[in-house]
Amino acid sequence: NEDWLCNKCGVQNFKRREKCFKCGVPKS
C-alpha cells in the first residue's frame, strides 16, 4: 500500500493519483 496523504487537506489518495481528489493539490 503506497497510498499518499495530501499535504494540504490530509485526505488519503490512491497511489495512481497525481493530484488530490478532494482539493486538487499535486502530489509532492
Results as ranks from 00 to 15, higher is better:
W4L: 05
R17G: 13
C23R: 00
Q12S: 07
N13F: 01
G24Y: 11
N7Y: 10
K8T: 12
K27L: 11
F14C: 14
N1K: 14
E18C: 01
F21D: 08
K15E: 12
K27V: 09
K27R: 10
D3T: 12
G24E: 08
D3C: 02
G24S: 06
E18S: 07
C23A: 03
C23I: 00
C23E: 02
P26T: 11
N1M: 15
E18L: 05
K19A: 11
K19V: 08
C6S: 00
K19F: 10
Q12E: 07
P26R: 09
R17L: 14
L5G: 11
K22H: 05
F21A: 11
C20M: 02
W4P: 04
W4V: 05
E18T: 07
R17Y: 14
R16G: 13
G10W: 12
Q12F: 05
C6N: 00
Q12V: 05
N13K: 01
N1L: 09
K22W: 00
R17I: 14
K8S: 09
Q12C: 04
L5I: 15
K15D: 04
L5T: 13
S28C: 15
F14R: 11
Q12R: 12
G10L: 14
C6F: 02
K8R: 10
N13I: 02
R16H: 07
F14T: 13
N13E: 04
K27S: 11
G10E: 05
V11C: 00
S28T: 15
K15R: 08
R17V: 12
R17D: 03
Q12I: 13
N13P: 04
Q12L: 03
C6Y: 09
P26Y: 15
V25E: 13
K19M: 11
N7A: 14
K8H: 14
K19Y: 00
K15M: 04
V11T: 15
N1G: 07
P26Q: 08
K22M: 02
C23D: 02
R17Q: 10
V25D: 13
C9R: 02
N7S: 12
N7M: 03
K15I: 15
V25R: 06
E2W: 05
E2T: 15
F21T: 12
G10Y: 14
K15A: 12
K19T: 13
G24R: 06
F21V: 05
G24Q: 05
D3A: 03
C9M: 04
K22V: 01
G10C: 10
L5P: 13
N7V: 08
G24K: 10
E18H: 03
G10N: 15
K22N: 02
V11A: 13
L5M: 07
V11P: 06
Q12A: 08
C9S: 01
P26W: 06
Q12H: 15
V25S: 11
S28W: 06
K15P: 10
F21I: 04
N7L: 14
W4N: 07
K19R: 08
F14V: 04
F21M: 10
E2P: 00
C23T: 01
G10V: 05
C20K: 00
G24I: 03
G10K: 12
N7P: 15
E2V: 03
K8N: 05
N13H: 07
R16P: 15
L5Q: 15
K27A: 11
C9D: 03
K15W: 11
K15Y: 11
F21P: 03
N7K: 06
K8V: 04
K8P: 15
K19W: 06
F21H: 06
V25A: 12
C6W: 04
N7I: 06
C6P: 04
R16A: 12
D3L: 05
K27C: 14
N13D: 13
K8F: 05
D3P: 01
E18Q: 11
E18N: 08
C20S: 01
R16E: 13
N7R: 12
K27T: 14
E18D: 10
R16C: 04
K22S: 06
D3I: 10
D3E: 08
N13T: 02
L5A: 13
C6E: 02
K22C: 01
K15G: 11
K27P: 14
E18R: 06
N1Y: 01
W4M: 09
K27M: 12
W4E: 04
K8Y: 05
V11F: 11
G24C: 04
V11K: 12
E2C: 10
V11R: 09
D3G: 06
R16D: 15
K22L: 00
G24P: 00
V11L: 08
K15Q: 12
V25H: 13
G24L: 07
F14W: 10
N13G: 03
W4F: 10
L5K: 13
Q12D: 08
K22P: 01
K22A: 03
C20P: 02
C20D: 04
R17H: 04
E18P: 08
R17F: 15
K8W: 09
F21K: 05
K15C: 09
C23G: 01
R16W: 06
K27E: 10
E18A: 07
C6H: 03
R17T: 14
L5N: 15
E2L: 05
V25L: 09
L5H: 15
C6I: 00
C6M: 00
G10F: 13
C6D: 07
W4T: 04
V25Y: 08
R16K: 14
C9A: 02
N13V: 03
K8M: 09
K22R: 06
N7E: 15
